[in-house]
Design a protein around this nucleic acid. Sequence first.
RNA 1: CGGGGCAUAGCGCAGUCUGGUAGCGCACCUGCUUUGGGAGCAGGGGGUCGCAAGUUCGAAUCUUGCUGCCCCGACCA
Length: 449
Amino acid sequence: MRLSRFFLPILRDDPKEAEIVSHRLMLRAGMIRQSSAGIYSWLPLGHRVLRKIEQIVREEQDRAGALELLMPTIQSADLWRESGRYDDYGKEMLRIQDRHERDMLYGPTNEELITAIFRDGVKSYKDLPRILYHIQWKFRDEIRPRFGVMRGREFLMKDSYSFDLTQEGARRSYNRMFVAYLRTFARMGLKSIPMAAETGPIGGDLSHEFIILADTGESEVYCHKDYLSMEAPGADLDYDADLAPLVQSWTGKYAATSEMHDVARFEAEVAETDRVTARGIEVGHIFFFGTKYSEPMGAKVQGPDGELIPVEMGSYGVGVTRLVGAIIEASHDDAGIIWPQSVAPFDVGLINLKAGDTDTDAACETFYARLQQAGLDVLYDDRDDRAGAKFAAMDLIGLPWQLIVGPKSLKAGEVELKERATGERHSLTFDSALSMLTAAAAGRAKEDA
RNA sequence: CGGGGCAUAGCGCAGUCUGGUAGCGCACCUGCUUUGGGAGCAGGGGGUCGCAAGUUCGAAUCUUGCUGCCCCGACCA
């Protein structure tokens, strides 16, 4: 993509309404614009990141055996009356009427809808277990939206729902999603830690929040320091194997958000030198809720003995739009965003330091073509602008690599390759730079495999 | 929903107290000079001053009502 043809409305000054760093940077980098409180338009740069995150989530869901579908944003109130939540949900739910004055709502979540779909389509225990998911816009009329896309009213969410015959089966589904989440967040360059969360109506230990650590995170978290060095399972993981030991290894030590924090337990279970107190952002939440919806809504299957059994369900959410902000909170510096390679809107920014100079232009055109041929996503800054302005813009939007091409280095037969994360710059031939870049991209592809 | 604040050009702001027909920086357009970390000079374009009513010869400025947005708290992926 040539920057001269792209839509990238960068702001030099901080918009005053943006308090936290991710919100400021997203506005300044031309990723989003606010439409109204807690509702945002995603501009091309932001949209690219959103799609990349969505795709990683999708791939890991698929890998774990979940099946993608797509449910509507607008739902009928009748379904919610079946579960009893129409009256319980309160003002967070956006209620609307169609032209026939039928009560409708903009879905804040999809338990009712998925349960209805499931109940109409599945009658036998032989069709279990299943995990279904979709990635869809939700609306929750938060009392006070804030922090940009981190707590918007309209947000993109991946929500999965598991259906099992027994609680033991539900635990296996839960473990699948648990492990899928470890991989999902790791692929985005995030350190995520599962933390025990408030258990639902069923109780038990099947509820976890996935927290990523960021200095500017909204909640205080406490955990054993071993979690910081644990590696998410690799791509060779067999989801059909018994995942319980793996889940156990990620839940065996102390980890809690401030709501669940128990100082006495923390101090008893974790040696003083192993205690970590940090700040975190919740990016995923998984829980088991048994027959809460299947019972009242009649989602039952026939068991081997012919009896009707309400299915055991769980639900598993990932805040896709929130992740965009969360990644920035976890990865930025004074100059701007620092995208992990896997979610970066482009792999590399090609900077023409002297647009209009025949030799430099020609070299850049060649490099641009060759980078693309190598399968790299390139943002080519071909604008006639000052070097400083180009550096500043490229640092702000945070592409992982900058390939800097100017007459001086060209004369020496070289280009400069700058790594955004470290600021390190290497002078080298274009061919060497190209192999470094393709190696970095290959590394990313390998993680994905 | 309680408390506080803001609303003037794309962004950041001044002007409001003391009414006289809108200004600054950045961004944008044109030209010249510049050119490796947000250049200089000159010339330009862009605003129903959030909306509505009122007071007045005259309202960004005063009065009343409304709306939107932000911050702090209770709630959340």
